[in-house]
C-alpha cells in the first residue's frame, strides 16, 4: 500500500484531535478518501454530503489535480502523494 499524506484546513482540526497533517495507507484515490473518513469518522460529514459526494464547497486535490477532474477515482496512488482538502468559496 502507498503512504499518502493528507493536509486539512485548520477549521477541520477539531475533527482529527488537532491534527492537520495525516498519513494514511491506500492503493487508490477512492480508497484513500474512504480510509481517511474511516480512521477519522468525525471528518465524514464535513467532507462528504448525504449522497457520499464531496460537499459542494469542498475542494480536494491529489497533488496538483482537482479530484473532480479525475474521472477514475480507482487510479493508483503512490508513496508521497498528497491529498489536500480546501474550502472552495470565492466571492463575497
Amino acid at each position: 500500500m502507498a503512504r499518502v499524506q493528507v493536509e486539512l484546513p485548520s477549521l477541520l482540526a477539531a475533527a482529527t484531535g488537532g491534527q492537520r497533517s495525516l498519513e494514511i495507507e491506500a492503493d487508490t484515490l477512492e480508497e484513500a478518501l474512504r480510509v481517511l473518513v474511516t480512521q477519522h469518522p468525525r471528518l465524514k460529514g464535513h467532507v462528504f454530503d448525504e449522497r457520499g459526494e464531496l460537499r459542494q464547497h469542498v475542494l480536494c486535490f491529489l497533488n496538483e489535480t482537482n479530484t473532480r477532474w479525475i474521472e477514475d477515482h480507482g487510479r493508483a496512488v503512490k508513496d508521497g502523494d498528497r491529498i489536500v482538502l480546501l474550502q472552495a468559496v470565492s466571492g463575497g
Binding site: 477549521l11 477539531a14 460529514g45 464535513h46 460537499r55 469542498v58 468559496v89
Partner: peptide, 17 residues
C-alpha cells in the same frame, strides 16, 4: 459552517471542547 456542515461538541467546562 457554510462549507463543512455541522458538528456537535461536548465540554466539561465550556472552554475545552
Amino acid at each position: 459552517n457554510f462549507v463543512y456542515g455541522l458538528a456537535i461538541h461536548r465540554s466539561p467546562d465550556l472552554v475545552e471542547w
